[in-house]
Design a protein around this nucleic acid. Structure first.
Length: 272
DNA sequence: AATGGGACCTGCGCGC
DNA sequence: TGCGCGCAGGTCCCAT
């Protein structure tokens, strides 16, 4: 699921509704999702802490806690964070892996069908290996910097956009949508892009991500917002998941192939 | 440096 | 109805 727009949507909702709340209970239903420290220590340490701030870096969500430690959450493919009122059955639903009881009668569930998700409690999020390997945030890019980053790369452009050490936050859906918007074939070597194409790509990255955030992200299967509501951006997808259907721009049939093991959607006529 | 494949997991939809 | 296969918003690790 979650790429930058989805994680950003959750972050913003969390800032509205769980900031300042105290963690009054932690229930670990699947210890495997707790990557550090041990599940027992995780549970014990979180107890009684207050949520002071919510940050995002790439696809990683970071909760700053009252004792200066950080709870980091990576949703990977099927992770969800869903807030509800306390109910007798809260936490018992389907794929709940960890349940956080919060002050004010709220329950935050971390759900994750495939168990790829990772929760960590750390002293400093900046020291996490995953964080240290991340490239710049898309919204921090300057055109000059972006141009330089592309110029030495022989890799095909689509896997490059998804490479978190190159730029952080873009995944399979948005790489496809961005390249469509920039009218660039996903197979093009990065360094082959013309000046004009680089400009179009730079612009498309910011526009697509911004618009996806505005519409609450893309709910295909699992991703939902903090409220449990689905994100609306799927209706704006122009290529992702549209293989066999007509291009909205030129009416050609949208194609799907595989690149680096990932489904790649594109319009063979619009994207050169 | 770049690319492909497999691993980690669970569940869905499809064709037979 | 049931089974096997391919596929899924991510990332890491290994081989070539």
């Amino acid at each position: 699921m979650p790429e930058l727009p989805e994680v950003e949507t959750i972050k913003r909702d969390m800032q509205k509704v769980i900031l300042g709340r105290k963690i009054t209970g932690v229930y670990v239903h699947k210890p495997v999702v707790i990557r550090e420290p041990s599940p027992a220590a995780f549970k014990k340490s979180l107890q009684g802490l207050t949520i002071k701030n919510i940050l995002r870096r790439g696809k990683l969500l970071i909760l700053e806690l009252s004792n200066g430690s950080f709870l980091t959450i990576h949703l990977k493919m099927t992770g969800q964070l869903v807030l509800s009122q306390n109910l007798r059955n809260s936490g018992g639903s389907g794929n709940s892996r960890v349940t956080f009881q919060l002050s004010g009668g709220k329950t935050l569930n971390f759900n994750d069908q495939r168990l790829f998700g990772e929760l960590r409690l750390v002293d400093s999020w900046k020291k996490i290996k995953f964080i240290q390997g991340l490239g710049p945030e898309p919204f921090d890019l300057t055109y000059g910097g972006f141009q330089d980053m592309l110029s030495e790369k022989k890799t095909r452009i689509k896997p490059l956009l998804m490479d978190q050490s190159f730029i952080s936050g873009i995944g399979n859906i948005y790489a496809a949508e961005i390249l469509f918007r920039a009218r660039i074939d996903p197979d093009r070597p990065a360094q082959s892009l013309s000046e004009k194409e680089k400009q179009a790509l730079y612009k498309a990255i910011k526009e697509v991500l911004k618009s996806a955030i505005k519409h609450g992200g893309s709910s295909i299967d699992d991703y939902v917002q903090l409220s449990g509501k689905r994100g609306d951006y799927v209706k704006f997808h122009r290529v992702y998941g549209r293989q066999g259907q007509p291009c909205f721009v030129c009416n050609s049939i949208i194609k799907k192939n595989t690149q680096g093991g990932r489904g790649t959607y594109f319009c063979p006529k619009c994207q050169k």
